[in-house]
Nucleic acid binder design. Structure first.
Lengths: 242, 242
DNA sequence: AGCGGGATAGTTGTCATACAACTTCTATAG
DNA sequence: CTATAGAAGTTGTATGACAACTATCCCGCT
């Protein structure tokens, strides 16, 4: 059973465009045709070598180009995984380039810098009207506990209101340009025991949000910075657990 | 003569993202910076191997990704050639209209949040190559003491290198999209006894920059955050004194 | 001199092998 | 049952070799 009928997959050199280019086309076709679900693991390089009858050099170049195209992500020692397709679900923001696992973690590190300072400024300079808006967003956020749909938007609205309360249009503009996708979860290795149904986990997050609000409400800048940093650092840890 | 002067081009493995990826960044930087005219021939693979001290495997993967990105085109037996240069994307932070006095102060508050965290991450995650780049920018910055022209660019370059050293592309992209005008001084009420010729003032600023660099060099994240925050807060105070 | 033609060197494309670095699984000792 | 060490699997990099293609130059011929 070593190989007889598998060989119809073999690539030959007659294309003129290069073997790697042809292999890219084959794999891209499979991915875009939906035959490979996002998060699913690609065959190992050795398997592709055997399947298509080319050298590992060609396979590696092909995968490298798929990475550059944002279709797969590769982890040393684990393998390559299919990413989500350029999804067009209302997230009409220029920053839909947050796809890979690393991007998600980097985005949270980015938000730590931006949002903790914004929260601090909000605590120190907010108006009462702005505080009311933050409070309202927090209420909406806690209310959507069981409904997963809309949770991302509510979460984003809470953070956006805080940026607005900073009174600094640069923080507000930046968060607006990021949009709700900044909350986005990693596409690869999703669901494993990270469902929102975990009650303990949910009350934790709620408390983190409330701590941020309370610090802003009483005008405590340092506490607001710390609370926001803690909230995002915890979020990062929750995503990184693997 | 194993080590010559060219070796400051060498890549090392500490990036966490792969040698090929790093080489892509270097080449892309050169191309997008306009240092390579469209139609111009890229160095041969052998040259790149010698110049960057990596294997041909890495060089080929890097060039392959540049092809996928549409930046170069290669012909067997002839070489790779630079194509056109499209795309200028970034964050939609309206940095073009930073004119009023308040805008300038807000911009510094914004940079406090962004850059202090970027400096902290840089201290914790920098590679030696990235540190070298920061050091070089600092040297260039201190050297332009008497020449006012180019001082803004040198200052910006120093801050930009730190953002790059954070290893987080969001910080790097944001600073790049802000551009050198983020250093910009208030249009109104400038000159009054606040010229750069003030020697005391100049050594103060130099010391602030050096403190940031030293903290990053020794890997002290909290100190780097504090040093950057201090530097920007002092800058804010220097501008606000009126 | 001018022209053709082929040798020759230079460049990219592919293959094969080996080892390093990292991850996952498994089995063994406690 | 846990924890630790070890083995096995997978990707990252280096190296050498040869094939395929291109550009150039030299040499003999007309």
């Amino acid at each position: 059973m070593t190989s007889r009928a598998d060989d119809d997959q073999r690539l030959d050199r007659e294309t003129g465009r290069g073997l790697a280019h042809e292999l890219v086309e084959r794999l891209k076709e499979q991915i875009l045709a939906g035959q490979m679900e996002p998060g699913q693991k690609l065959p190992t390089e050795a398997s592709l070598v055997a399947e298509f009858g080319v050298s590992r050099t060609v396979v590696r170049e092909a995968i490298s180009r798929l990475q550059a195209a944002g279709l797969v992500e590769t982890f040393q020692g684990r393998g390559s995984f299919v990413l989500a397709l350029p999804e067009t679900e209302g997230f009409a923001v220029g920053a839909e380039r947050v796809r890979t696992h690393r991007d998600v973690l980097d985005m949270i590190d980015f938000r730590i810098g931006v949002e903790s300072e914004a929260a601090g400024l909000a605590a120190e300079r907010r108006t009462d009207v702005q505080l009311k808006a933050v409070e309202r967003a927090l209420r909406d956020l806690t209310r959507v506990g069981e409904k997963p749909s809309g949770a991302v938007e509510a979460d984003f609205e809470f953070h956006r209101r805080i940026a607005l309360a900073s009174g600094n249009r640069f923080y507000a503009d930046l968060l607006a340009s990021l949009g709700p996708m900044m909350i986005m979860l990693p596409r690869t290795r999703l669901e494993p025991a990270y469902t929102v149904s975990d009650a303990t986990h949910l009350t934790r997050v709620s408390l983190e949000h409330e701590n941020v609000y309370l610090a802003i409400a009483r005008g405590d800048g340092p506490a607001a910075r710390a609370a926001m940093r803690l909230h995002l650092a915890n979020s990062r840890a929750r995503l990184q657990q693997d």
